[in-house]
Write a protein that binds this DNA or RNA. Structure first.
Lengths: 118, 118
DNA sequence: CGGCATCCTATGCGATACTG
DNA sequence: CAGTATCGCATAGGATGCCG
């Protein structure tokens, strides 16, 4: 868990500050995913880092981890209510970047590898 | 300037990700300030780091730096239009933190007393 | 399949000293 | 007053290998 400094804006900024976290949250806003699915959606992430980011998101109560004890094991990640309420804010950030940073919002681009949405 | 990864949400997240940046933006949303005023508003920041954060905010076009060549020199920082449009988003982040992280929003608290959390 | 353990590098940040 | 220059540490993140 990150330090919050007593400032709520920093607190929110910190929980999404990891390199892959907003992408993870964004993908999970369309559909819950397994570990390997997320890895496929995030080209370039290592397993160690992906696991770490997911652990921190879980600690911060943004995502919920569901383990199914089978062989092979199955682990599903999905947004918590808190995580879902973050999505509208991320959408605002997306729009702001489009206007002020020249980075175009791309809601259809489920990222580099598009997957069917629900 | 930070890397944007081609993702607009990350782009926005990155420009406010510095340790002191949201506090700087927050203070400047109330009044433009001189370098020494900001230093006084941010207890614990070193001059080097404050200067660096301000330089990055300037590069990202969130703040505008106005130099008055007098003796002693005077430098004023204020929000750009882009910076001002970020404030409503930061307010949303503030409210979200209050609900989901238990970090209370404090809009009147112009100098935010640091209370570490975890 | 979904992870840890280990090693490594890059860099953000802090402390201090100096300067135009 | 408003910065730079230098040093040093802590940590995030990447590469690789092993495991239940």
């Amino acid at each position: 868990m990150k330090e919050h400094f007593g400032c709520p804006i920093q607190a929110t900024s910190n929980v999404i500050a990891g390199k892959w976290k907003v992408l993870i949250l964004w993908h999970l806003s369309f559909a819950s995913s397994r570990f390997s699915e997320l890895r496929g959606l995030l080209p370039g992430v290592s397993e160690k880092v992906l696991a770490a980011q997911l652990r921190e998101l879980e600690e911060d109560r943004l995502v919920i981890r569901t383990i199914t004890q089978t062989v092979p094991p199955r682990v599903d990640y999905r947004l918590s209510p808190a995580g879902e309420e973050l999505i509208p804010i991320m959408r605002k950030m997306c729009e702001w970047a489009g206007v002020h940073l020249g980075v175009l919002p791309n809601f259809t681009q489920r990222s580099i590898g598009a997957v069917g949405s629900k």
